[in-house]
């Protein structure tokens, strides 16, 4: 999993059925220094808000387990909202 920041929303009406009724959030992926290192569009299952620091899962098998599927084109899922992040004993600011 990776730490990321929710920076946007994506809305679509034409998509694969699996993504119907799911909120898509665009997240910056954070590197160890907290700087953006790429982005990914994730399915949100924890009602994360714009600007929040989140935990992003980016692996198909686990993602499918979240939705109880044995097949499905899904990888990136926001699985948590980060309350506290400490690296090398240093607390990082978390929204």
């Amino acid at each position: 999993m990776k730490v990321g920041t929710v920076v946007g929303t994506v809305v679509s009406t034409i998509n694969i059925p699996l993504l119907d009724d799911h909120r898509l959030l665009l997240c910056d992926i954070q590197d160890v220094d907290g700087e953006p290192d790429g982005y990914t569009i994730c399915v949100d299952v924890v009602d994360a808000g714009i600007g929040e620091t989140v935990l992003i899962l980016d692996e198909g098998n686990s993602a499918r387990q979240i939705f109880g599927l044995d097949t499905g084109a899904i990888r990136a899922v926001i699985v948590g909202v980060v309350d506290e992040l400490a690296i090398d004993g240093e607390l990082r600011s978390v929204v």
Partner: peptide
């Protein structure tokens, strides 16, 4: 690679 959706609207901070 597979297209899984068409974007109707996108807002990015």
């Amino acid at each position: 690679h597979a297209i899984t959706g068409i974007v109707d609207d996108i807002q990015v901070a």
